[in-house]
Design a protein around this nucleic acid. Structure first.
Lengths: 150, 150
DNA sequence: CTTTTGTGTAACTATTATTGTTACAGTGAG
DNA sequence: CTCACTGTAACAATAATAGTTACACAAAAG
């Protein structure tokens, strides 16, 4: 079990949009950076579009960020790409036997713990903004020889 | 995406072993409480056995807890049933384009954040013991009319 | 207006994980 | 020895993911 790579791809895409804000970011260009198929990018872009994070128009080349990177948290992105349904990171087996004391009480006993574990994870993501990621990428890249994507 | 119900089933099973420690807990009996197939229980039991949490012998009816419930955390169980591979709750798309500044630095930039989000989740699970769950089940059951599993 | 380029989306495939199920070999208590 | 139970293989059904092809539609550019 892993959380879908849609999340990491979305972070990649949005970072690229920021670092290449002067350029024309087509799905093909982005796909080349991510190393995947342009349709995969368009699907993710559609989700980010619905979440109001990017502006993308059908037929028109190039996607733009709609919000400053300092105001986009990783939690926003996580939610946008629907990696996990609302409050359902953990799944609980349904229909345990109500005739059994454990069966009829296990769900109510476990739920709050699963909720708080999920909340702890989400809080961590909420504390990191896209700006932090972009800065980290820039810092890491100072060691590297300066080649561009294009 | 959800975390496998193996986890909640394992918590259910171990709670039942504690609350029914005087009884003979066969996979069929447990399966009836969980409302699933006995083979599903045996598979999970095999994992808990390997983790040293229960004693189960082939051919011999009945599983026993090997450790006191106060010394089994939900994280122990989570690890035992291999819901998530070591440090890999989130997946990062592999082989991003090294010719791109974002592509060649995204992994190193994201990894520590994913790690700490995962750690936050795991810490929450570590702070809850099986004893807490058992107590919660008992408390919740005081409202209910007293029927038994058997 | 036509051409060209790019986006949106449907449809299909391959892969993987989960959950449930049947079947049966092997173990050990009585 | 018999019987009940566990361990495990094998298989099916379901679902999610990720990649791919194909094509309709949008709109910018000429």
């Amino acid at each position: 079990m892993t959380i879908s790579s849609r999340f990491s791809v979305a972070i990649h895409v949005l970072s690229l949009l920021e670092l290449n804000k002067e350029g024309v970011n087509t799905s093909e260009f982005i796909a080349d950076s991510v190393n995947t198929n342009p349709v995969v990018i368009r699907r993710i872009m559609g989700m980010l579009n619905k979440a109001g994070m990017v502006k993308v128009r059908s037929g028109v080349a190039g996607t733009k960020l709609l919000r400053p990177v300092s105001e986009i948290t990783l939690l926003d992105i996580y939610r946008a790409v629907q990696v996990v349904e609302e409050d359902a990171l953990f799944s609980i087996h349904d229909k345990p036997n109500p005739k059994c004391p454990v069966g009829r009480n296990i769900q109510i006993s476990i739920e709050p713990i699963f909720s708080s574990a999920q909340a702890a994870l989400e809080l961590t993501l909420e504390r990191v903004t896209l700006q932090d990621i972009v800065k980290s990428i820039q810092d890491a890249d100072m060691d590297t020889e300066a080649t561009t994507c294009k």
